[in-house]
Every structure is written in structure tokens, then in C-alpha cells.
């Protein structure tokens, strides 16, 4: 495993730890989109269906279990925890899941490496992951104050796929791996969606101002 891949996984893990800290210690999910969190559950469930069938490494299996478990528990807290659920900005989190799920599923049926259940679900999970942040970004744009934890969470979540892009470049040129258009292009789109957020995040950090996205 190269350093970019590890950096990607660690920023992904750190983003989840930050979000869980906000939820468990601060008892708040203010500014967090339940829609996006539910999409991540779908992403992990459809991508890791091979968990019980194929073994890659101890690291790989543990990380998959962690991503599945944490994403499900985040959704549970936001929906059912009696204190946390009251901090959820329900009225502004209005992005409809189906507008992302349906096109991604149709695209996965049409463009995939092999027309098998596992392969189509895996492809679907990559397409869906690329756009799953959209409800979260819409929610941030509608929020007046974005607290530091939420801003850092979204930043780390975006940085994770950017590191994966570097990892894919490294694997292609240095480790001589094959071309993998589906994850590469999905990952590129996923990172590009964050471009605007990255710009305002870095700007607010440089000017030591509170993060605010223009409407």
C-alpha cells in the first residue's frame, strides 16, 4: 500500500471520527445532512457485499466493517437518539435521495465491467459515492453558521478521494496497474464536486474567518 492510499483511508477514517465526536460528545448533528449519511450507508452496503465472499487483507476487512458500522450508527443517532435528533436541520435537508440513486443505478446497469449482481452493485456504489455529498453541500449552503467540526468533516471527506486520485496515478505509473476507468472517473467527479467548498474552506482558514458558503 502506497502513502497516498494510506493518507486517503486515514482522512476518510478521521472524517468519520470527527462526525462521531460531534454526535456523541456534543450531542449534536446540526449542519449534517441525514440524506448524505443515508446515501453513504447504501454506498458501503452495496460496495462491500463481497465482504463475506472475498478476503483481501485483515486491514481491508476491518476498514470495511468500520465504515459499515459507523455509517449505520451515524444514521441511527440522527434518526432515533432523543437528544441528537432534535438538533437535526430537517427543514433545510430537503434534497431527494431518489434523484441521485435512480440515475446512478441506471448508469451502473448500462456502464459496468461485467453484467453480474456483484459488479453492478459495486459500480453503482462508486457512482453514488461520487454524488452522495451533494445534499450535504446544499445544506451547508443554506446554513448561516457552519461550525468548525462540520467544516473540517466535509474537508476531510473531500480530501480522502483527492488522495485516492494520487494513489491511482501512483499505482498506474509506478506499480504498473491496469486502467480502471470507472473508479478513476467517478473519483475525479467526486473530488471536483468539492472544488467550490475547498476554495471557501481554504480562504476562510487563511483569513481566520468563520466558514460561510455563498448562497
Amino acid at each position: 500500500m502506497n502513502a497516498f492510499r494510506l493518507a486517503g483511508d486515514m482522512t476518510h477514517l478521521l472524517s468519520i471520527i470527527l462526525l462521531l465526536h460531534k454526535i456523541r460528545a456534543m450531542k449534536s448533528c446540526a449542519g449534517i445532512s441525514l440524506r448524505t449519511q443515508e446515501l453513504y450507508v447504501i454506498v458501503f452496503v452495496t460496495r462491500y457485499v463481497d465482504l463475506s465472499m472475498k478476503y483481501y487483507s485483515f486491514y481491508n476487512s476491518i476498514m470495511k466493517i468500520v465504515f459499515l458500522g459507523t455509517s449505520i450508527s451515524i444514521v441511527w443517532y440522527m434518526r432515533y437518539h432523543k437528544v441528537v435528533k432534535q438538533t437535526y436541520n430537517k427543514d433545510v435537508d430537503t434534497f431527494r435521495h431518489i434523484f441521485l440513486i435512480l440515475p446512478c443505478f441506471v448508469l451502473a446497469l448500462l456502464i459496468n465491467r461485467a453484467f453480474t449482481v456483484i459488479e453492478v452493485l459495486w459500480t453503482f456504489s462508486l457512482y453514488l459515492e461520487a454524488v452522495a455529498i451533494l445534499p450535504q453541500l446544499v445544506l451547508l449552503q443554506r446554513s448561516r453558521n457552519i461550525d468548525n467540526l462540520t467544516g473540517n468533516y466535509v474537508f476531510l471527506l473531500g480530501a480522502y478521494r483527492a488522495f485516492y486520485l494520487l494513489n491511482w496515478i501512483y499505482r498506474f505509473f509506478i506499480e504498473n496497474h491496469q486502467v480502471r476507468w470507472i473508479p478513476w472517473l467517478s473519483g475525479l467527479l467526486q473530488t471536483a464536486i468539492y472544488a467550490d467548498f475547498f476554495y471557501y474552506y481554504i480562504k476562510s482558514w487563511k483569513n481566520r474567518e468563520k466558514l460561510k458558503l455563498p448562497a
Partner: peptide, 10 residues
Amino acid sequence: SRRKISKDEL
């Protein structure tokens, strides 16, 4: 020749 595709990523 290039290495075969492995889904060892997350």
C-alpha cells in the same frame, strides 16, 4: 504487461 485489477481498495 500490466497487473490484473484487484478490488483491494475501499
